[in-house]
Amino acid sequence: MHKIILKKQLSADVYMLKVYAPLIAEERSPGQFIILQLDSDFGERIPLTIADADTEQGTITLIFQVVGKTTTRLAALNEGDAIANLVGPLGKPTHIEKFGHVVCVGGGIGVAPLHPIVQGMKKAGNRLTVIMGARNKELLILEDEMRALADELILCTDDGSYGRKGLVTAPLKELCEQTPPPDLAVAIGPPIMMKFCAETTRPYHVHTVVSLNTIMVDGTGMCGGCRVTVGDETKFVCVDGPEFDGHLVDFDNMMQRLKSYKTQEQEAPHPCKLNQQIENMNR
């Protein structure tokens, strides 16, 4: 059992939890995730990125958006409650070294998984430009944390309620047009955003790392449910990833696979924010 030490609401449907998990806190690296399950018999196993960890407290930080059944139940838990099953850290850690100028792009909830990567890249001595996007001001998360790490922070909202009005791809393109262009781009967010970020950097040959959020079951390479097409190969996100070369990922196939259970989950009697999520993806 993993006790919830701290709970905070970051925006309308985004929550932050600090959970007691000392072994995972000790072993985790940026880019890795956990899988949790709220009930051993009938609960679903869902992956969430380790947004931060505190080895002294023995806690890990999870930041999640309420999109369906399990995230709704998770959001209803309070400090002092416990999560029945938590396994990790899973996935390959982010490849971190001194690249030079790194642009990190986070969209919506994708800012959460981006955070530990930005921390790592900073530590390795990179110059960091962070671009964060959300539909509106209320939905922007971790602004202060990112401001503290970034050499330059660019905020975008779809409706112009804060920062620049428009999509994250606009400032990304401007950065690519500079000479020299950035040495590396990291983009994490809705698949459609990652796809367009990759398309933006492609003509400039800026290597672009994306972190994929496929459907998962075990997270250890056993089921193949998380598979994606990368280049000509099939890869398992949980063990070969979650990060891949964005210029090689078949995002269209991935987006279709994410909707595998769409109708089935819509039929289920729970407050599903699916439509909103699809809207997000397709904006």
Binding site: D39, D41, F42, G43, E44, R45, K69, T70, V217, D218, M222, C223, G224, G225, R227, V228, T229, T234, D250, N253, Q256, R257, K259, S260
Partner: peptide, 27 residues
């Protein structure tokens, strides 16, 4: 990698371990 292609491991794990056959109760 089309939607509807599964490894037996995935299909059976969903049904056995995760009890997805019990559509009423399983998440």
């Amino acid at each position: 990698n089309l939607v509807g292609v599964f490894s037996a491991n995935e299909y059976l794990t969903r049904s056995n371990l995760m009890r997805a056959y019990d559509r009423e109760r399983a998440d």
